[in-house]
Amino acid sequence: MDRWRAQAIALLLELPGHFALLATAGDDPLGFGMGRVAADQAEVLTLAVRPSAQRGGVGRLLMQAITEEAAGRGATELFLEVAESNVAARCLYVSLGAIPAGRRRAYYPDGGDALVLRLPLIRPGAEGAG
C-alpha cells in the first residue's frame, strides 16, 4: 500500500481548491480524506480508514463529508479512482450513487486497473431549482 507522506499532504493543502477532512473518536484518528475542487469538478485524492475502524461507517461518513465540502465549493460532480480489486470500496462508492466513468489500465504499481467513478453532486441551495 502506498502511503502519503506528511510533506506531500502539506504541499497539496497549500494549493488552491484542496482540502482534507479527519474522522476521529475523541483524540483517536480513525481516517482521513483529501479532495480538490476546480471549477465545477471535484476529485477524491485519497480516502483512508484505520484498519481497526474499517466496516464501521467511517469511510461512508468521510465520503459524505467530502461530497458536501466539494458541493459547497461549487462542484457539480466528483470523480475518484478505485482499484478494481477493492470490492468493499467499490460497494461503498456505488451505494453513494457513483457510476462508472472509465478505466485506467495498469494504473497501480502491482499492475492492477483503476476504475474511474463519477458521483453527481447537488450544490447547497440547488434542490428544487430548475
Rank of each mutant, 00 (worst) to 15 (best):
A75Y: 03
L80K: 03
G33K: 01
G130D: 14
L62I: 08
F79V: 12
D27N: 11
G59K: 02
V94H: 08
E68P: 08
G35D: 05
A6Y: 05
I66N: 11
R90Q: 09
G33H: 02
G57Q: 04
E84S: 01
A42K: 11
P100Q: 13
H18A: 03
L15R: 12
A10C: 03
L92T: 05
R5T: 13
E68S: 11
V37N: 12
G111P: 00
C91A: 10
L15K: 11
G59D: 12
L117Y: 13
R50I: 00
I99Q: 15
L119H: 15
G111T: 06
M34I: 04
T76R: 15
E127V: 12
G35N: 02
D110K: 10
S52M: 00
R3L: 04
L119C: 15
A114W: 12
L22F: 01
V116E: 14
F32G: 11
D110A: 08
A42S: 12
V58G: 04
L61N: 14
L117C: 09
R118A: 06
P29H: 02
G57I: 02
L115F: 09
L21S: 00
A75S: 07
C91W: 06
A101W: 00
G31V: 01
M63G: 05
L11D: 13
S52Y: 01
R105E: 15
G112Q: 09
I122R: 14
I99A: 15
D110H: 00
A106C: 12
L121G: 11
T67Y: 03
S52E: 10
S85Y: 10
G102F: 07
A8L: 09
L80Y: 08
R118Y: 02
R104S: 10
V87L: 07
H18N: 01
L45D: 04
E84R: 14
I66L: 13
L45P: 03
L15H: 10
D28G: 02
G125P: 11
E43T: 12
T24C: 07
R3Y: 00
E81V: 05
T76C: 15
P100D: 12
A83D: 01
Q7D: 14
G111K: 05
A38M: 11
R105W: 05
G57P: 06
G112K: 02
S52A: 08
Q7L: 01
M63V: 09
E77C: 08
R36P: 10
A39I: 14
V58R: 08
A88I: 08
A53E: 02
A89G: 02
A71E: 14
D40V: 09
L11A: 07
E84P: 03
E127L: 15
R118W: 05
L92I: 05
P16V: 00
P109I: 07
R103E: 15
G102V: 09
